[in-house]
């Protein structure tokens, strides 16, 4: 279980981006952090791992302050994928995934048969076995993201944090990566990710945490969080929320200032949409 207590985060120069935030993340859930640009969702994710040291407060993993833990001990329990990581030119998929074993190795115990088996499993799970010898930079965007996820899998952590795992991917690859993360979650991993797309967050997350100005505005199930009021409050955007016809989760339909460009079509559909969830 990850808990943030009175957490304030900021960078060397300037004011704190996250202010006095307290948050408990449910084990076994997929949690999505959403919010407008600059709301601090990526900063919060960095603070929940050890990429950013808190200005105040602390983050606890199963009751232990993560900054009091040894770096490798933490890395065996919690993995993090930064946004759009880039591999050195020529690094093969197998070599990248093998790096996931880093926290399990030391001076005396280097590469073992167990490591090799775990890397093979991670490749299998991400459908990359056939691409093991390919340089990461020659893969498509979706395959590349899967390769990085495979590296995090080889790390064998119970908790996986991801910063916008779908950035720069086309829609099909976005869904592919999210489906993969859902599978990993079903195997028992706790997943926390920053997502831009509210509808994807609503589909894939058990819990959504909406942030604005470094503070939590709403937290709960997708049904609780994705409402017209919350969207207005968090993004300053008028939106209808209807039921996603495929999954039954809330689906956010932005109205915008003008209700779209085609006024006639908008007028003709007015009142016909039965699925709008009453505010």
């Amino acid at each position: 279980m990850i808990q943030a207590e009175n957490l304030s985060l900021g960078y060397d120069s300037g004011a704190n981006i996250i202010h006095q935030l307290t948050l408990t993340l449910t084990p076994g859930h997929i949690t999505a952090l959403v919010g407008p640009n600059g709301c601090g969702k990526s900063t919060l994710l960095r603070g929940l791992s050890r990429l950013l040291k808190p200005a105040h407060g602390a983050v606890y993993l199963d009751g232990q302050d993560i900054h009091a833990m040894k770096a490798k001990d933490l890395a065996r329990q919690l993995g993090i994928l930064p946004q759009a990581p880039t591999a050195p030119e020529g690094l093969t998929v197998h070599e990248l995934v093998a790096q996931g074993r880093y926290p399990h190795q030391n001076w005396f115990q280097q590469w073992s048969g167990d490591d090799e088996r775990i890397v093979a499993e991670a490749l299998e799970q991400t459908n990359l076995t056939l691409f093991a010898d390919r340089p990461v930079d020659t893969l498509s965007g979706g395959q590349r993201q899967r390769a990085w996820i495979a590296m995090a899998l080889a790390q064998q952590t119970n908790v996986l944090l991801l910063d916008e795992p779908t950035t720069y991917l086309d829609l099909a690859h976005q869904i592919d990566v999210l489906d993969l993360l859902a599978e990993l979650n079903e195997q028992g991993r706790t997943i926390v990710m920053v997502l831009h797309d509210l509808n994807q967050a609503a589909r894939y997350a058990d819990t959504i945490v909406a942030l604005r100005g470094g503070q939590i505005v709403a937290q709960g199930t997708p049904d609780q969080v994705i409402t017209s009021e919350n969207i207005l409050q968090v993004f300053g955007l008028d939106a209808d929320v209807i039921v996603d016809p495929v999954t039954g989760t809330p689906l956010c339909v932005p109205i915008g200032r003008r209700g779209g460009r085609n006024k006639k079509a908008a007028a003709s559909i007015n009142g016909k949409v039965k699925t709008v969830i009453p505010a």
């Binding site: 791992s49 990581p85 790096q99």
Partner: peptide, 14 residues
């Protein structure tokens, strides 16, 4: 490991 990027290396416990 650090040639994968500093954030990745830190995430791996370096």
């Amino acid at each position: 490991t650090i040639s994968l990027g500093e954030d990745v290396a830190k995430g791996l416990g370096q």
